[in-house]
Design a protein around this nucleic acid. Structure first.
Length: 412
DNA sequence: TCTGGGGTCCTAGGACCC
DNA sequence: TCTGGGGTCCTAGGACCC
């Protein structure tokens, strides 16, 4: 039997801002930017929430809902700083801590009763220590699974502690809206509602085959969640296993949409540099570079390209991003957002030797592919790059192993 | 009403290999 | 000439979370 805590800081960004400016206390505060800016609400104080303001709402909408709200720019460094303080407090309690984001964490307190006493007493002590050490309020959920602990901390808000007793998971979840289940968002909620499923209890009563049929693998995970289990992607692995990032990206929304190529390309350069720097910070190398383009009408495309080696060089990232941009951008259309994304991340250095080896392997493969084609279609069916010019030659160099794929079988 | 930025995970089709 | 199945990698898009 496991015992998990989910610790969630109350109105984290707002609370931190209040520490820097106590005059904000008790007032409707919106963190995320100014009332006339493009952007959305990162966090709203409880007083602001009374006006219907919530996170992810456009700032301009928030302004309309509550013109006398105080709009505050976000300060990511402050939040990271306080997040570290929060982590320290949690660490002092148990080494099995995992920050799930800046303002929430999971703890595995299984088998610590001798040290900490019963879970509820331990949670209250943690709650007090947190307030004393960071001046911040948090809510704590306790349960036998991380998923239920998370839902329970949400039910405990603000500033509360809630323990779901072992065996009571399904009963605790049953009356809640399906939307309360982590992973069920707007779209899934709508799909479920269309089938008359509104409460978690409705979900738990369904046949697993029915869920699999309509929602695939995800449906099966959903069935598990409705019964209080840690099912599906999110809750894999042990608490406290932190891992390298799987991707690194930066994007930028222009204050005004623009079709100015110089501005667009220099923005790409800047974004590429930011991505490169973060890669170097993590000592990671990226195999794939992805461009993100959003136009005025909000249509968004992504275009990716994998390199034949991993890189952390700004110039290489930029080169790829710009090439993708030039190949895919709808001419003259105004652009709202640009993004540069690096994935296929590999650790460590020393791939130069591997690279050289890799490249000869590729050539060997390419040449044997050429041989196979010649066997099939005759000696003149393929010629080597030396005899070619311009762009095609470049392409052959970039992707020698791609040659065989360009020969359609059916046509021959 | 006008929609950020940084992530993770999943799906689905096609290429390619065995 | 037509016909497989499984596994992996790549790309594009989308749901979701904070």
């Amino acid at each position: 039997m496991k015992t998990y805590f989910h610790v969630d800081m109350d109105a984290f960004f707002v609370s931190v801002e209040e520490l820097f400016d106590p005059s904000l206390r008790g007032k409707p505060v919106v963190v995320g930017g100014q009332a006339d800016q493009r952007g959305v609400v990162s966090a709203a104080s409880y007083a602001a929430r009374k006006f219907g303001i919530h996170s992810a709402m456009p700032l301009r909408t928030a302004y309309r809902q509550c013109p006398h709200a105080i709009f505050v720019d976000g300060h990511p460094e402050r939040y990271r700083d306080y997040s570290r303080k929060v982590y320290k407090v949690l660490q002092s309690f148990s080494p099995q801590v995992e920050m799930a984001s800046v303002d929430e964490a999971y703890m595995d307190l299984t088998g610590t009763e001798k040290l900490h006493g019963p879970p509820l007493a331990a949670a209250h002590r943690l709650h007090e220590t947190m307030k004393r050490e960071t001046s911040l309020n948090c809510s704590i959920g306790i349960a036998t699974s991380r998923m239920v602990a998370k839902v329970s901390s949400d039910q405990a808000k603000p500033n509360g502690v809630l323990w779901v007793l072992p065996g009571q998971e399904a009963r605790f979840l049953a009356p809640l809206d399906v939307r309360k289940i982590p992973g069920v968002g707007k779209v899934t909620e709508k799909n479920l509602q269309a089938r008359g499923i509104r409460k978690v209890g409705d979900l738990a009563a369904l046949d697993e085959d029915f869920l699999r049929e309509h929602f695939g693998q995800w449906g099966l995970a959903l069935a598990g969640k409705s019964r209080g289990l840690d099912a599906g992607g999110w809750f894999d692995g042990e608490v406290g296993e932190d891992s390298d990032p799987k991707s690194i990206s930066h994007e930028f929304t222009f204050n005004e949409d623009t079709a100015d190529v110089d501005l667009l390309e220099s923005t790409l350069a800047r974004l590429s540099e930011m991505v490169g720097r973060r890669l170097r910070e993590h000592a990671l190398y990226a195999r794939t570079v992805q461009l993100k383009l959003r136009y005025s009408d909000f249509t968004t495309i992504t275009r990716a390209r994998s390199l034949d080696h991993a890189t952390q060089l700004d110039t290489e990232i930029f080169h790829q991003a710009r090439a993708l941009f030039r190949e895919n951008r709808k001419a003259k259309s105004k652009v709202r957002l640009l993004g540069v994304h690096a994935s296929g991340l590999e650790a460590g250095e020393g791939q130069l030797n591997l690279l050289a080896e890799d490249s000869t392997n590729r050539w060997r493969k390419a040449l044997s592919a050429v041989d196979r084609i010649r066997d099939k279609f005759g000696e003149d069916s393929v010629s080597l790059a030396t005899g070619l010019r311009g762009r095609f030659r470049e392409r052959v160099h970039e992707n020698p192993a791609g040659l065989p794929g360009k020969t359609p079988r059916k046509d021959s």
